[in-house]
């Protein structure tokens, strides 16, 4: 390794360590401030506010989550209101400000949220189409994009969002496995997994990091997976125990865990889909230890570097 590379690596580590300290301090301050100053609603709202995934276009969001929300609304006789967010940061902020009662989150956003907001609690995991309670992230490219995962520098890389598990965290991890890193390349956040895939196909980026399942969706367009992470905890429903009464949380959990998915959309106007149709299992905070280990003292950049 050349000297300037060592210096860069050293500097990156230093920044990551400092960043982690600042983040921890920030989280503690936010936690204390939100505990002391936050206005805690004393009565559960008649409408449950649900935050879907901010990583997909809104049409997809609606089509994916309507079976779930409609099922809960019918089963528990509650109203569910969608609270859209443009990105994870906004979603987590909404959650911390008690504007969201329940959210569909990937593992990294949950870990970040939990670190700053102890009232966030995982409820259930949604199984992937592989019937696993895990999923993987991938580094993808397109033929002719001239992406060198090992030696390439200053290559354009598309990422989803800072707080996306398949964003900076996993992509940088995959690059580091090849003795490369995001900081040695040019990366930018483009928002959604689909947009990462399509922007790579369009040649706007040499490579991109996204959920493997989404990358597979665009394989027919020539997108191919260069590398894939180990299994990560699946997406989960995260409840806000500050705004949700315990009995309602228990009722939701029970309804989802007891759901018999062998009968396609029983009583449902909308059939089960990839969100809910693959199965549901109980989730615990300890399931996320792998993410916490992966995150370690790493400092996730909130903005792209070009």
């Amino acid at each position: 390794m050349k000297s300037y590379q060592k210096r860069a690596v050293y500097r990156a580590r230093l920044y990551l360590q400092r960043g982690a300290k600042i983040m921890r301090l920030l989280f503690v301050v936010l936690l204390v401030a939100s505990t002391l100053l936050g206005r805690v609603p004393s009565v559960f709202a008649a409408t449950v506010r649900f935050a879907p995934l901010p990583m997909e276009n809104k049409e997809t969001v609606l089509s994916r989550f309507r079976p779930l929300t409609e099922f809960l609304a019918q089963r528990l006789q509650i109203d569910i209101e969608y609270v859209y967010a443009d990105d994870y940061a906004e979603l987590l902020e909404n959650f911390r400000k008690s504007k969201v009662d329940i959210a569909y989150l990937g593992p990294l956003p949950y870990v970040e949220l939990r670190a700053a907001y102890a009232e966030a609690e995982p409820l259930v995991f949604f199984k992937e189409s592989s019937n696993a309670v895990t999923y993987t992230c991938a580094l993808v490219t397109f033929p002719g994009n001239d992406f060198d995962v090992r030696h390439g520098r200053y290559q354009k890389i598309a990422l989803t969002q800072p707080l996306s598990t398949c964003g900076y965290l996993s992509t940088n991890g995959l690059l580091r496995n090849s003795n490369n890193s995001l900081e040695d390349n040019n990366y930018r956040y483009v928002g959604t997994h689909d947009e990462v895939a399509l922007s790579v196909i369009r040649g706007e980026f040499a490579a991109g990091g996204l959920k493997t399942a989404v990358a597979r969706k665009y394989a027919h367009l020539g997108l191919f997976v260069l590398m894939e992470t180990p299994p990560l905890p699946a997406f989960a429903l995260i409840v806000n125990t500050r705004t949700m009464p315990p009995d309602l949380i228990a009722a939701i959990k029970e309804a989802l865990l007891e759901l018999d998915l062998t009968h396609s959309g029983q009583g449902q106007q909308i059939p089960w889909n990839d969100v809910i149709g693959n199965g549901i299992v109980e989730a615990h905070d300890s399931d996320y230890q792998v993410i916490r280990d992966l995150l370690g003292s790493a400092r996730i950049q909130q903005k792209g570097n070009f």
């Binding site: 397109f142 033929p143 196909i201 369009r202 040649g203 367009l221 020539g222």
Partner: peptide, 15 residues
């Protein structure tokens, strides 16, 4: 995969 790449290139060309 050759068809897939051609499809992707067509997508790239006309996007």
């Amino acid at each position: 995969y050759a068809r897939a790449v051609a499809r992707g290139q067509l997508y790239r060309l006309l996007h």
